[in-house]
Amino acid sequence: MSSSTPRLEVDGLTVTFSGLTALDDVGFTVGDGETVALIGPNGAGKTTVFNAVCSLVRPASGSIRIGGRRAPATPTGLLERGVARTLQGLGLFESLSVLENVLVPLSGRRDGSGRDAALETLQRLDLAADAATPVAALSYPARKRVALARALATRPQLLLLDEPAGGLGPDDIAELADVVRTLSAQGCSVLLVEHHVDFVMDVADRIVVLDFGRVVACGTPDEVRADPAVEAAYLGLEAAA
């Protein structure tokens, strides 16, 4: 990949479900070490973008390129392309321990380095003491950290975070913002879907605003904040709330 090739390139992405257009000609890029936020009202198509990038839904048209290559045909191929994702519903294996959850994406490593990588990540996210605890026994903020740890353990080049700040208190959100900034500084590209506007404005280099499956604005946080279309579609609703 040349230095000018975006880590993620979404171009003309259109997704339909039973004739209903969920995404309509969506395009944006995420550069190396860049943090891009997808925002928009509920139903705008944010998670559908994630699902398309993760090959969970098949686009009607358009292209998705990861590191200059077409996205893999199945989600199983994401890991080897350096992509990791967290899920809105966390998607943790409830009866498995914290360590086992983090080990799952590392379990394909044949050199035995998975366990060390998992333990190191747990240490980094202050979860080492809970390594043997079943996930079901943890608090919600701790469970969110486990989901993040599971994604980070593979040292992704592109990290997709689906509502990472949802349900967290101010301290946890501040910690999360630190983690995202550190990742960015290390060259990891981050694409996040988030409703927490302050968090988005804090960590995002650029923001893509979706409404009814279309991109209505794209720019830096200041540019997006000043865009009247955004205020109408999303931030206005937030302000009114």
Binding site: T76, F93, L96, S107
Partner: peptide
């Protein structure tokens, strides 16, 4: 074993496991 972990994970949540690189 890691194989056993993959089998347990894919049995519990096949879709999530696929996202995590497990060949379900």
């Amino acid at each position: 074993t890691t194989l056993g972990l993959q089998m347990r994970a894919s049995a519990m949540a096949p879709e999530v496991s696929r996202l995590l690189g497990v060949r379900v």
